[in-house]
Design a protein around this nucleic acid. Structure first.
Lengths: 133, 133
DNA sequence: CTTGACATTTGCCATTTGGCAAATTATAAT
DNA sequence: ATTATAATTTGCCAAATGGCAAATGTCAAG
């Protein structure tokens, strides 16, 4: 796979967002990780798929745990056998660890506001569906 | 590395021993894992180094935990911090339990989309601040 | 507008991975 | 010993990774 998969590129997006969140440039991440900036760029926009060793090198600079990144990349199955529930399971479904991590960095008011916005969006979506059958 | 490392080949040895312990032939392991026998053979005798996806596919058939094999291969640092705390606290802040509960009921794509929206709102907010000092 | 100093992307290519098929090497069974 | 049969190894090659250097994009200062 040359990874020209343009439609879905979850991993790249996540990596880019996290890099920006740490306000790092590709070059700075290169210095921290030893991975070339050109490659990092291609990975972020989904033109290359990062090998395990690459993930390992960029994990800590980006503030990820190694196994966290491996799981996001699909190298490791979610919920490794180690610890039963590191993250609580609500109503059969689960909160994505990455989402939890990012949201946890926001003040509580913002976290709550996010819920409000989500509920508004859902309501808007519902009324749109009624109009357009 | 073409893995012509003849002197020390820890991983290959381990894999071979474990395969024999399970009394599997290369071909049988191929059926269980979907990895070609020729490749498995080369990995065992150190002529190739297995990628993460290969390791993942042969882990369970050989009776290994995925992260165990990854660690043996050097992809994962030994003793990952996984066991730390059940409810990880990220960056000093914490995820509000109620927020976690509500979000956990949404599909993962929605959870991720929420992050995207949040990031857009923040960016809008920043630009508004720049305009109105 | 232009220059300079960045950051990101692209072109190119050496290296590696991993599969298929053919060759070789065990292992039995007669 | 001599086939038959299964197991491993080798030759070859398509596909992918990841680095370097050059091209391109971005943006603030003059």
């Amino acid at each position: 796979m040359k990874m020209n998969d343009n439609s879905k590129n979850a991993l790249g997006e996540i990596l880019k967002q996290q890099r920006l969140r740490m306000s790092l440039t590709l070059r700075e991440l290169t210095e921290l990780s030893g991975v070339s900036a050109s490659h990092l760029g291609r990975v972020e926009r989904g033109e290359r798929f990062p090998s395990a060793s690459i993930l390992r090198r960029i994990a800590k600079p980006l503030g990820f745990e190694e196994d966290e990144l491996f799981t996001l990349a699909g190298y490791l199955s979610p919920q490794p056998p180690g610890i039963a529930e590191a993250h609580p399971v609500y109503s059969g479904r689960q909160l994505d660890p990455y989402v939890a991590k990012v949201l946890a960095e926001e003040p509580i008011e913002v976290q709550r506001a996010v819920l409000g916005i989500l509920s508004m969006l859902k309501s808007i979506a519902r009324s749109l569906i009624k109009e357009n059958p």
